[in-house]
Amino acid sequence: MKEIFVRLDRCVGCHSCELACAVEHSRSKNIFEAISETPRPRRRLYVEYVMARKMPFLCRHCEDAPCVRACRTGALTQDPLTRIVTHNPDKCIGCWMCTMVCPYGVIGREWERRIALKCDRCPGREIPACVEACPTKALVFMEQEEFARLTRLEAAEEVAKSYRIAG
């Protein structure tokens, strides 16, 4: 299954992903109209500034997700195949059990309805909006093997470079 991976060294903190996420989850899916919508479209991922680094935080769709275990109403469910954790707003009662257990702090609040809000990995899209919007490819959507290979190649490139410098 494809996952969203983060290449931390590439994130420049431009917040394009946050914007794209909010627009994608608006009714109009258009940035100019989205601004005036109610409920106000909200981002479901967050770019933070930690230890002099820009870091995008988004739902990791954990295996055996704590939020799903903590949910008492069945509003959060996890697809056994894709591991995607889906939030059903009709079943959500706004008790924040999921927020309290999420280790990454990525379950927010839908302000108007006072219920939980989280990444749904853009069900209608082939590539999630945040990944598509990322100008530096800090966010990538690929298979785990593919991502590992990418990281390997990057590391190899560095080794090769240092060899060249060493002559």
Partner: peptide, 10 residues
Amino acid sequence: EESASGLRVA
């Protein structure tokens, strides 16, 4: 008890 177990998962 069950709610506590759910939270303890964290």
